[in-house]
Amino acid sequence: MASNGQPKILVFSTEKISDPALDLAGLLKKHYPFTIYTISVPCSSCIKPRWIMRAFDKGFSGVFIAADGTDCSYGESCGEKTSQVVTTTHQLMRDKGLKPSQLKMAAICSVCAEPVVKHLTGFMKELEKMQS
């Protein structure tokens, strides 16, 4: 838990598409809670369920996958494959007594500064409610 008692969110962003949206949000000084941390990967369909489970194990309250959606430059199957990662992980989460709503996914494109901030602040509010 962070110094201010807020839940922590781990974001998996993608190097070419959704991470630039987070950069753009910063550039536009669109603020979001500082307890949101990003790890950037090439494509959202390469995220391993074990990484997500590791984040929960170590104390993250939520994991957010900023997926490429139909914009993925590696091909159309990305969205479906990322959803598969989420489905598999949801099962592992249930087995550990975690709520599926602690893992969220949304398609974020490189200019989605506003939407990504909305998603993240909304998710933070949900997690805060869950915590209280």
């Binding site: 987070l22 950069d23 753009l24 949000a25 910063g26 550039l27 000084k29 669109k30 603020h31 979001y32 500082f34 990003t38």
Partner: peptide
């Protein structure tokens, strides 16, 4: 910067 000082310039 983009995901640090700028995103959280309010804090």
């Amino acid at each position: 910067r983009e995901q640090g000082s700028w995103a959280h310039s309010d804090n």
